[in-house]
Simulated assay, not measured.
Amino acid sequence: MRLILNVIWLIFGGLWLALGYLLAALICFILIITIPFGFASLRIALYALWPFGRTIVDKPGARPGALVGNIIWIIVAGVWLALGHLVSAVAMAVTIIGIPLALANLKLIPVSLMPLGKEIVPVDAARSTQVGVAL
């Protein structure tokens, strides 16, 4: 089922969203001081291409630099990328088949706003980590 959803996602919106993140990464790499944002944007672009079967988790440990970086990211690119996800989610939710795709768009909004200090992992790895913590 993940494969089918990922292919539908790629055709009906994932490619355009990933291109938006790639454009943000390119701009960040050109401006040299924002290279960490560029790497974060590349990670999200790969996630935006194939989101089903992967999830977002917080990286372990305190990261005060990530907080400052996320505030800058929200101002520079995060708001626009989040709006792109919101518009895409509304457009995809029009059909019944598009509802899971709309939910995936909504799942991408928090990481589009605050990408630093986050990690994208397979769903199975995230579940095994949560079970380990609960024990």
Rank of each mutant, 00 (worst) to 15 (best):
M1F: 13
R2K: 14
R2P: 07
L3H: 13
I4S: 09
I4C: 12
V7K: 04
L10W: 13
L10R: 13
L10I: 11
I11S: 05
G14W: 09
G14Q: 01
W16G: 15
W16V: 15
A18I: 12
Y21W: 08
Y21E: 05
L23P: 10
A25F: 03
C28G: 04
C28K: 09
F29P: 05
F29N: 05
I30S: 07
T34W: 06
I35Y: 10
P36Q: 04
P36K: 02
F37D: 15
G38L: 04
G38H: 04
L42Y: 03
A45C: 03
L46S: 09
L46A: 08
Y47P: 00
A48Q: 00
L49G: 00
R54M: 07
R54E: 02
I56C: 11
I56K: 03
I56A: 07
D58T: 14
K59W: 01
P60E: 05
R63W: 05
G65S: 09
G65N: 10
A66V: 00
V68M: 06
W73K: 10
I74M: 10
G78W: 01
V79G: 07
V79M: 14
A82C: 04
L83Q: 06
L83C: 12
V87L: 10
V87I: 15
S88K: 03
S88N: 04
A89L: 06
V90N: 03
V90P: 00
M92P: 02
V94S: 07
V94N: 03
T95W: 11
I96Q: 02
I97K: 01
I97T: 11
I97W: 08
G98L: 11
P100V: 13
A102P: 10
A102H: 02
A102I: 10
A102S: 13
L103Q: 00
L103E: 02
N105E: 04
L106I: 15
K107F: 12
V111R: 10
S112I: 06
S112Q: 05
K118V: 05
K118I: 05
E119G: 01
I120W: 08
V121K: 08
V121S: 09
P122S: 15
V123G: 09
D124C: 08
A125R: 13
A126Y: 10
S128N: 13
T129C: 14
T129W: 14
V131P: 13
V131K: 13
V131G: 12
G132F: 15
G132C: 14
